[in-house]
Amino acid sequence: MKYSNRNQALLLLADGTIFYGKSIGIEGTVFGEVCYNTGMTGYQEIFTDPSYFGQIMVASNAHIGNYGTNEVEVEADKIMISGLVCKNFSFNHSRVNSTEGLKEYFEKQNLVTISDVDTRALVSYIRDNGAMNAVICTDGTPIEELKKQLAAVPDMEGLELASKVSTKEPYFVGEPTAKYKISALDLGIKKNILRNLVKRDCYVKVFPFDATYEDMKSFSPDGYFLSNGPGDPDPLLVAQETAKKILENNNPVFGICLGHQVLALANGISTYKMFNGHRGINHPVKNLLTGKGEITSQNHGFAVVREELEKHPDFEITHEHINDGTVAGMRMKSKNCFSVQYHPEASPGPHDASYLFDEFIENIEKAK
């Protein structure tokens, strides 16, 4: 059937549930795993975060677009989400340093967006029934046809997506005269991670997702960094092998999110797909080494199996998520290696965890 109103649009979930809304004016049909972010600000950083590649984003904040966009407030050079679902879409914006409105920003990249959705009900439904594949349609495609197309979309579990967002060729960030040299594995790296490293006097060479240890070692780095990124970490066999060799040579290494999961897999510790994942800028984490609490920015749908990590003789859990007890950080006892399952480079967001970049530099100094 066709929709009766030309502006009418819908979100169809894999279990057959339908939420209706309105198109903001960009016609099309897009697929992805539906998830939600609870952040009250920072929508542009969310939309351009490579870790969200392949996902339909539901914004739980009631207003999206009210402060427009700014060309420097991005985590990648383009929008990474598959589509957007929101309650109130602001066609007009108000901010002194905005570059353009959100609709114009979306039109340039053809991001299909559905507004006027009961996002409170939608977020509650996803929370109770789990993240699942979905389709946004704003062009009137019949629902039965959408169901057939949606059934053919692969699940996120087992899906390798880092190759879709990683750089194709190595590139440099920072000043060649900087004190420290870092080889970074780009599994979907955010620009603000690189800014934080450069701010700490690092010259960074960023390598593609499938770079070998020999590739990264050729830069003669003082330390290695494994980045965040989208998809399931399990298929990233080359990255896991690279991580193994970094550890075999006891090089200083720091991993964030997907990089954290790759380090676990490189040591025989499993990961699993979470029911919903953690996505927001107010997630509480406890530092088990200091006893202090941290408010953190998080964005992940996979996690490290805590029971296996606790049994591993060479690992200890350094941070845990206070809400559900999942592993939020770990380190090795015999290697110069640590990682976290959240974003210390958060922007916008809390800066409680920015000290982790300082710890990485301290580890590099100790290794010299």
Rank of each mutant, 00 (worst) to 15 (best):
M1H: 06
I24G: 10
E27I: 00
Y36M: 10
T38G: 02
T41W: 10
Y43L: 12
Q44E: 05
E45C: 07
I46Y: 06
I46K: 06
I56L: 14
V58D: 05
H63R: 14
I64Q: 00
I64M: 08
D77A: 03
S82D: 05
F89D: 11
F89T: 11
S94Y: 06
V96L: 14
N97F: 15
R120K: 14
A131M: 14
N133F: 10
C137T: 11
D139E: 14
G140P: 01
T141Q: 14
P142H: 13
K148I: 06
A151H: 10
V165W: 00
E169Q: 14
E175Y: 08
A178L: 05
K179Y: 05
Y180M: 11
I182T: 01
I182V: 13
I193W: 00
N196Y: 09
L197A: 04
L197G: 07
R200I: 00
V204G: 13
A211R: 02
T212W: 04
M216Q: 09
F219D: 08
D222G: 12
N249D: 06
P252C: 02
F254E: 03
F254L: 03
C257A: 13
L258G: 01
Q261F: 04
A266R: 04
T271V: 11
K273H: 14
N276G: 15
H278P: 00
H278S: 10
G280M: 01
I281A: 15
H283L: 09
K286H: 01
L289G: 10
E294W: 06
V304Q: 10
V305W: 00
I317K: 14
H319M: 14
E320S: 15
K335F: 08
N336M: 12
Q341I: 09
Y342C: 07
E345G: 08
P350T: 05
D358V: 01
I364T: 03
A367M: 02
